[in-house]
Simulated assay, not measured.
Amino acid sequence: MPIVLVRIDDRLVHGQIVQGWLKILDVNIILVVSDIVTLDTMQQMLMTMAVPDNIKLDIKNLKNATNGITNGQYDKERVMILAVSPSDILYMIEAGADFKSVNVGGMHFISGKRQLLRNLCVNDNDVESLHKIHIKSVEIEGRILPEDEKKDIIPLIEKEYRSMHSR
């Protein structure tokens, strides 16, 4: 399956995706993986308006998206996957999705999270999930826009992971 980009971005479809990533990636489907967005028709409508007409927007809950990926629904497509959290990506990988790389583009600060980088705020569950993704030999790189330099965020995650488990 030609999955062009797997991205963790809590804002999902927004300007950096449309103006940055879509301009350099040859995708024909954006798969938004979000249990919450599947229940929010207003957010679905706003995302649909933001995506260019030549790109299909597929919004699915975690279970249905995972089933579609692992059952070959997207095998003939060029897909960008957008998910809100590392735990969603981990779920897909553990269910059989074959991701080689995950881009962390935006995990913003909310109460209960701590800031590691400008665009990387995590809680313990995020750290656990990113650690588990990493030990499955999946590259995890931090980058907001495609022209930005890839940043290896594994040292930060592993430091957080060790700190959590030494408490």
Rank of each mutant, 00 (worst) to 15 (best):
T41E: 11
I69S: 01
D148F: 10
D9H: 03
N103H: 07
S87G: 13
V79R: 09
L12G: 05
K63A: 03
V4P: 00
V138C: 03
T70V: 13
L130T: 00
H165V: 12
A95Q: 12
E139T: 06
T41L: 14
A97Q: 10
V4W: 00
V33Y: 05
S137P: 03
E158Y: 12
I153F: 06
I110M: 10
G72Q: 13
I30H: 14
S87D: 12
I36T: 15
P155S: 06
S166K: 13
L130A: 08
V138E: 09
K136L: 07
N123R: 01
I153M: 03
D26V: 09
I135Y: 04
I154N: 01
Q73E: 15
P86M: 13
L25S: 10
D75Y: 05
I30W: 07
Q115K: 03
G112R: 01
L22M: 10
E139L: 03
L31D: 04
L145V: 05
F99K: 01
N103K: 03
V4N: 01
A83H: 06
P155M: 04
N103M: 02
L145D: 09
D124S: 11
S137M: 10
D152I: 01
K159Y: 12
L25Y: 06
Q44N: 10
L145I: 00
K76Y: 13
R118P: 10
K136P: 08
L117H: 14
V32T: 04
E77K: 11
V18S: 09
E128C: 11
P2V: 00
D58T: 02
K159T: 13
T66S: 08
D98I: 02
K100G: 13
E128Y: 09
V6I: 04
R118V: 15
N28A: 00
I24Y: 15
W21P: 15
I55P: 11
S137F: 06
R78I: 08
K151Q: 09
K100R: 14
V51G: 03
I36S: 15
M164T: 02
H134M: 08
A65S: 06
D152H: 07
T70F: 11
R118D: 15
N125V: 10
N125I: 09
V27R: 00
D75K: 05
K159E: 13
I24A: 14
Q16R: 05
L156N: 00
E147Q: 14
I29N: 03
C121G: 04
V32F: 04
E139Y: 04
A97N: 06
